[in-house]
Design a binder for these strands. Structure first.
Lengths: 152, 152
DNA sequence: CTCCCTGCAAAATTTTTGCATCAAT
DNA sequence: ATTGATGCAAAAATTTTGCAGGGAG
């Protein structure tokens, strides 16, 4: 995720027709900082609170909801039973690790292209497709290390 | 989803090393009946309760959890922030409708095969892949009708 | 008979809501 | 100045837990 300064965050909020309040700015910055972790509201709040002692948990909930509705961030599917968010609206593919319960983004342009052309050859009746995503499930061997994918 | 009688449900529970209690049987039957709806615990409970007035909501929660841990049913990813379950452990592909908030199963053997062979040509470092799933997002045009997919 | 499952109710967790006040445009 | 966002606290919704009694193997 790219690094954004205050001014850029402001502009991005405005681009999504959102009032650029201080709380919204810091919530969005927290999401950027927690990039790759797909945090729930509570986790965003915990990160924010020390530097912004006056912010309230309710506001974080409301803000994340507004962000998701506006399309500024994505709600991420999870099996954990709580709402989780991602500032990266481009990467849609996720790896679920059943060991560590992590949700890990991955991008694979070749795979996207393969699916793109596959779905172009299908016709959906009564459905307007907006996008697709792939999820891999499995286990990290070494929980402390990263997962990498290479061609054979 | 295939129709199962009591005896077959019993056998299936036992096959997953689960004691075949009356509550487990009716919870599993409810999941079969709600096939395609990916219900949360509460919805399973509502369906069950009239015919089984003595069953408790807590038991439904525990039972669904036990089912998911044993592999008898799947937890289904959702963006709704509650745990949802599916008795169909074969179909992994889902369509999310942002209009109706439905999660709709779909199977597409050709697509599975395509992905299967794709992933066989990749190597995952530090990850043991167990399976993959595709999710389509979009909108049902007519909420009252089914979605169908055909080749062009 | 034994062990695990169940019902119940309380507690914990997560999320939403109402309202007076405050701040961004 | 206006409008909508915030903080706070209460309420609602969801999920977990502890324990005494009950039922399956």
């Amino acid at each position: 995720m790219q690094q954004l300064n205050r001014q850029e965050v402001r502009q991005r909020l405005v681009a999504y027709s959102l009032k650029a309040t201080h709380q919204r700015i810091v919530v969005y910055e927290a999401l950027l900082e927690l990039h790759g972790q797909h945090p729930a509201a509570e986790e965003v709040f915990r990160l924010l609170k020390p530097a912004n002692p006056s912010i309230s948990l309710g506001t974080v909930y409301k803000t994340l909801d507004v962000f998701a509705e506006s399309g500024l961030v994505q709600r991420v599917s999870s099996e954990q039973g709580c709402k989780r968010y991602d500032a990266n609206t481009l990467a849609h593919n996720h790896i679920y690790c059943s060991n560590t319960r992590e949700i890990i983004d991955f991008e694979d342009p070749e795979l996207e292209e393969l699916l793109q052309s596959y779905f172009q050859r299908r016709h959906m009746h009564n459905f307007q497709m907006q996008g697709f995503a792939i999820q891999l499930t499995g286990n990290k061997i070494d929980p402390g290390n990263r997962i990498t994918i290479t061609k054979l």
